[in-house]
Lab assay of single mutants.
Amino acid sequence: AFSSEQLARLKREFNENRYLTERRRQQLSSELGLNEAQIKIWFQNKRA
């Protein structure tokens, strides 16, 4: 489960760009304390 802070950040990123570069995913992973797979799957689900 994502914290409300993490979700807000993911939604902001998604609004700016529906697709993440690998580098951006790595940055978000480290900033949010999530693993890259969690972020990747969140974006895939959000696009679906």
Rank of each mutant, 00 (worst) to 15 (best):
S4M: 12
N45Q: 13
R9K: 07
A8E: 14
E31V: 05
E22Y: 07
N45T: 10
Y19F: 13
L34C: 05
E5K: 08
R12G: 05
R18P: 15
K11Q: 15
Q26L: 10
A8V: 07
L7K: 06
E22C: 08
E31S: 04
Q26W: 06
F43E: 03
N35Y: 06
N35S: 15
R9G: 07
K40G: 11
K46D: 04
S4T: 12
L28A: 00
S3N: 10
N45I: 11
L34Y: 01
Q27A: 10
I39H: 00
A8Q: 09
R47H: 09
L28H: 00
K40S: 14
E31I: 06
Q38D: 14
Q6R: 03
S29V: 08
L34A: 04
A1C: 13
L20F: 03
L20H: 03
R24E: 08
S3G: 04
R18K: 12
I41D: 15
L32S: 02
L28Q: 00
Y19W: 11
R9S: 06
F2P: 05
Y19N: 09
N45R: 09
L32G: 00
R47Q: 12
L32D: 00
Y19M: 08
L20E: 05
R47E: 09
E22I: 11
W42F: 08
K46N: 12
T21Q: 04
L7I: 11
S29A: 15
L10R: 01
K40E: 15
A8H: 08
L32N: 00
L10T: 00
L28K: 00
F43W: 15
L20Y: 02
I39L: 08
N35C: 08
Q27H: 07
L10F: 01
K11E: 15
I39M: 03
N15Y: 10
L32P: 00
R24K: 11
Q26N: 07
L28F: 02
K40R: 12
Q27G: 05
S29I: 05
N17I: 04
S3K: 04
N35R: 08
E5S: 08
L7S: 04
F43H: 00
Y19R: 07
N35I: 06
F14Y: 09
R12Y: 08
E36D: 07
E36F: 05
W42V: 02
Q44S: 09
S4D: 14
E13L: 05
S30W: 12
R9E: 06
R47V: 11
E13A: 12
E31Q: 06
N17Y: 06
R24W: 04
Q27F: 08
S30Q: 14
F14D: 01
N15A: 14
T21K: 04
K40F: 13
R9P: 00
E16D: 09
N17P: 02
Q44V: 07
E36I: 08
K46V: 10
L32M: 07
S29H: 03
R18S: 12
S3D: 06
R23A: 15
R9M: 07
K46H: 14
Q38M: 12
Q6L: 05
Q6W: 03
W42T: 01
R18H: 11
E13Q: 03
A48V: 10
I39P: 00
S29M: 06
E13S: 05
L34D: 00
E16P: 01
Q38V: 14
F14C: 06
L7T: 07
L32A: 01
K11F: 13
E31C: 04
E13Y: 05
S4H: 12
E36M: 06
Q38R: 06
S4Y: 11
L32K: 00
R18A: 12
K40D: 15
Q26T: 09
R24L: 09
K40Q: 15
N35V: 05
F43G: 00
T21C: 07
R25N: 09
E5M: 06
R12I: 12
W42Y: 07
F43N: 00
G33I: 03
N35K: 09
R23M: 12
R9C: 06
E22P: 15
L10C: 03
L10I: 02
Q38N: 05
S3Y: 02
F2Q: 03
R25Y: 13
N15S: 13
S4R: 10
E13C: 06
F14M: 02
R23S: 14
R25Q: 13
N15V: 07
L7D: 05
I39K: 01
L7F: 03
R9Q: 06
A37W: 14
R23I: 14
N15G: 09
A1G: 13
T21I: 03
N45E: 14
Q26C: 07
W42P: 01
A1K: 12
Y19L: 07
R25V: 15
N15E: 15
Q44G: 07
Q26A: 11
F14R: 01
Q6N: 05
K11I: 15
E16A: 07
S3T: 15
R9H: 06
W42H: 02
R23H: 13
E5D: 11
F14S: 01
L34W: 02
L10N: 00
A48M: 11
A48P: 04
I41C: 13
L34E: 00
R25A: 15
E5T: 08
R9A: 11
Q38P: 01
S29P: 02
A48I: 11
A1T: 13
F2H: 04
E16N: 09
T21S: 12
Q6P: 00
R47F: 12
R24A: 08
F43A: 00
A48G: 08
E22W: 07
N35D: 15
G33A: 05
L20S: 02
R9N: 04
N35W: 05
S30D: 11
R23W: 08
R24G: 05
N15L: 11
R12D: 11
A8D: 11
K40W: 11
L10Y: 00
R12L: 10
R18Y: 06
K46I: 09
Y19I: 11
N17C: 14
S3M: 04
A37Q: 14
R9F: 06
F14W: 10
S3E: 03
K40Y: 12
S4V: 12
R18L: 03
K46S: 14
L32R: 00
L32T: 08
L20A: 04
L10Q: 00
A37H: 12
R24N: 04
G33N: 10
E16H: 08
E13G: 01
L10W: 00
R12W: 10
A1E: 12
E31R: 02
R12F: 09
E16L: 09
Q6A: 07
L34K: 01
A37I: 13
L10S: 00
Q44R: 10
F43L: 03
Q38A: 12
K46T: 15
F14E: 02
L28D: 00
N15H: 11
E5G: 08
I41A: 13
R47Y: 09
R23P: 09
R23Y: 12
E31W: 04
Q27L: 12
Y19S: 06
L20M: 06
Q26D: 05
R24D: 05
L7N: 05
L7V: 08
